[in-house]
Amino acid sequence: MTDLPLPPTSRHAPVVFGRTIVIALVALAVSAPWLTDANALQLGTQFLCLLTVALMWNLLAGYADILSLGQHMFIGVGAYAFYGLAANLSVMPHIAIPLAGIIALLAALPVVFVVFRLRAAYLAVGTWVVAEVFMLVAGRIPGFGLGTGTSLPLSTAKAMGATALDRAVSIYLLALAVALVAWLGTWMLLRSRHGIALMAIRDNEEAASSLGVNLIRTRLGVFLWTAPFLGMVGAITALQKMRISPTASFGFLDWTVFVIFIVVIGGIGSLEGPLIGTIVYFALRYALSDYGTWYLIVLGGVSVAVMLVEPRGLWALLRRWIGEDVIPVSHRAPKQ
């Protein structure tokens, strides 16, 4: 068999193409406030929020081998913390959002303590139970609208800008900031010593533990890592909707069901997967918006099919063509 020498540019073309798309998307995201209107920015905010949550869920399921059905608990905690700070204590929204992230992290500490008593599939349903508890408790806190929820005061909205467009722009930029920090932070986490440990777990649990990787501690750490980002997404969503309520802020459908479909379809265990999945999700939602619950059925059906045919999702198919990661996380031997 003869080895036809490929010109080096053609071998790398798909990767260059992929990276160009990612950079173009980031550039588009950054310049969006100057290009579009308030409605598009609100959609963009939703996109970035969902993308961030998908990234976090993927970090758990795809790298740390933790399947959680309860990550929406931290979204809700973030939303309620934001309401408490911004509405009840009149903290500036820009300060209340990171504080909401910190409160979500604090809430995660006891959660970790409880749910990590359960293993594997049990942990999945256990986190769901904890999320239910948070939601039920949130509906009983005086001053937070009890079971029906409540609106944020106008002063909070005014703090974000004078006009609807100004507000949409500032909220969008907040979402963009959180999304970018989440992505860069997670990318750096994956390239760190802890990230190598995570990928060792993913690829071979026995080998990882024999290498002395402390599985439990690494997993706990990743679980905690996701909480502040989810909390900030919850805060931003509360700010955007100007409302909190137990069922919406702790929305299982919005923040766990869709997120799982996004990651499964896009590709578990990669940084590209959540991005692809979120784009596919928004496209499907748009295309099937006239068909009511059918789009949920389609999403469910597609993700079942993905698990049967290619458990690493659309990204695995694309990657075969591209040949390497568009967003590289693994360290390679240095080139000569």
Binding site: L67, A121, A124, F261, G292, W294, G301, L308
Partner: peptide, 30 residues
């Protein structure tokens, strides 16, 4: 359906039954 994922580790059976759950719920709703 399920036999294709029964011995495939933790994620596939959970995620397939999760998808099934959403399909059943929304099928009934429909």
């Amino acid at each position: 359906l399920l036999r294709h994922v029964t011995d495939k580790g933790m994620l596939p059976p959970l995620l397939v039954t999760f998808g099934l759950s959403v399909i059943i719920q929304n099928g009934l709703l429909e």
